[in-house]
Design a protein around this nucleic acid. Sequence first.
DNA 1: CTTGGGTGCTTGTGCGCGCAACCTGGCCGA
DNA 2: TCGGCCAGGTTGCGCGCACAAGCACCCAAG
Lengths: 338, 338
Amino acid sequence: MTAADVAQAVGVSRATVGYVLNDTPGARISAQTRERVLREAARLGYQPSTAAQALARGRSRIVLVVLPDWPIEFTLRTHLEEAARVLDDAGYATITYTHHESEHAQPLWKLVDPEVVVGLVPFTPAQLRSIRAAGISRITPDPDERPDIGAVPAVVAGPRLQVRHLASLGHRALAFAASADRRHAGLAAVRRQAVEREAAALGLDVLDARAVDHRDGRLPAVLRAWLSAGVTGVVAFNDDIAGMIAGTAVRARIAVPRDLSVVGHDDTPMAAYFAPTISSVGLDSVGFGRWMARQALDLAEGRTPTADLPEPAVFLVERESTGPARPPAAGEGARPSG
Amino acid sequence: MTAADVAQAVGVSRATVGYVLNDTPGARISAQTRERVLREAARLGYQPSTAAQALARGRSRIVLVVLPDWPIEFTLRTHLEEAARVLDDAGYATITYTHHESEHAQPLWKLVDPEVVVGLVPFTPAQLRSIRAAGISRITPDPDERPDIGAVPAVVAGPRLQVRHLASLGHRALAFAASADRRHAGLAAVRRQAVEREAAALGLDVLDARAVDHRDGRLPAVLRAWLSAGVTGVVAFNDDIAGMIAGTAVRARIAVPRDLSVVGHDDTPMAAYFAPTISSVGLDSVGFGRWMARQALDLAEGRTPTADLPEPAVFLVERESTGPARPPAAGEGARPSG
DNA sequence: CTTGGGTGCTTGTGCGCGCAACCTGGCCGA
DNA sequence: TCGGCCAGGTTGCGCGCACAAGCACCCAAG
């Protein structure tokens, strides 16, 4: 089924079919002919060849969204769906892709030549080289601004809010608990830095930061060390880690939140049914998705990106795992070792 | 950068460049010329236009993997990575896609014209119509075999194993707990059916099957109703649900596993640190990934799918949440209402 | 000195579409 | 009567590539 087939069936030229189906501006086609073409195209089930279109136009109308190698939680799904919806309205197909450094496979940006490559987080130099080598110049976040990942609002707003929440409850000494999952390492480092900066800005101490693992039997000891060092609030990398901390604390007869408050990140369903329920940071993922889509669209259409978009909201859901800080007992405040 | 540019730089014709770069069988190119072409192509950073290749070949070398609208947990990621790796080795690009019925957007199979569309689960009739309307005939799982989703080994092997595990511990009366998440509904129904079939085959009773929700305060009452009906083992849709059941049970002073055993599905990290830790079904996701990739490859290359592939392994990880069934007390066995 | 058969390349065509440029016929004003 | 104009099309070219078919050249056999 090609446009030529449709043209022949209607009894017009191939170009006419193209003009009708593309609503080409400047083309003069009578309403009657237009109607006949549309009807016949529908009847024959005509589907334009995307390859031929891409070749003739020189544009693929594909946006490639590169995801970090994290588990994709609920929030991110919503985010991506909304972005895809906005881009679809503008006539672009959205393809999501997770790039694994270890992978020997051809990265997708070489294989589908997208018009724009969007990173959920800024690209590594190696990725940038690879993308550029594939002949793609429209990249966001803009690598020329050399943005630290720490500058991406969606990434650091959450950790900041976690700290502010604990601060508002009177906590002065915190610990940061990251995931031992290798794939989380990059993001965890960024969130940790954001936590430390925010804590410093508010005059709080981050007495320890480390990756925790439930399979490591020493976690209860770590918690006790935190307590005796004076830590009263734990900022967890995500809800999984927060659950791990809270669960371990309860088993170790450490009261949550009386002795130790724990705040998670992502507001996953699990946070709401864990025992204790986990206070967590939620994100306006629909808003973030729209924001991302508009960035990509501006780039694709050659407009200068509208940098003044409102930053989407981040909010804290308060549950059982956080409460007022207990007053520090005498003799506390030593930094835990190891 | 086109093949013509490379040809000009080397001083040969366009066709020669194509023959060298594609290693076209039947083309006779001297080792010397070949070398010069390869060197020059590399030096100029030549990237063939995928659109032109697709147009000329009539093949896109794209495989579209359609994901169900579930949260993509760790297991599935491994699965997809492995499938993508195998397909990449064979020269195919893998694009994953989640189709949302509600979405008004163009489905991706219309936008990237893949050679093969692979469903992680069989397609709905509406999806099939849409895919076929896009001119795609290579579809797996094969819709002509009209396979019930219940025939897909990766889908039903887990639930079966859950039942067998409980049966081996002496449980005779089970309940099935599904997710209240709308997006899980389809899969939950399939797993439930598999559970009921396996239970029937083993002579067990499934006394109740329902969606549970931690936000619904009636869950403790449901658990008590199960107990008084004689239920001793709960097959959970996944680890999340298993955690919800186990957590609620503990809060309601129902001993796990003494009074109630709970088995999850997916062997997520959470299952290992929940209190109690959750017995769960794990899948050999790498094996499943390879299996899926080979199905897709067979289809793409026009071979008859090798149906006799070994079914990848499914295994049970036994943890604290399951134990021997308590002997039924007198007066039990009535079916709970509501 | 021709003939035949490789080898190593080139020319040419078509993939399906977008779009620039060019026709054609009717109508209107001069 | 004629030129100009415009609606409503048409023809044709090019996008970058794959590949069939052709073509020059060389060497060995007759």
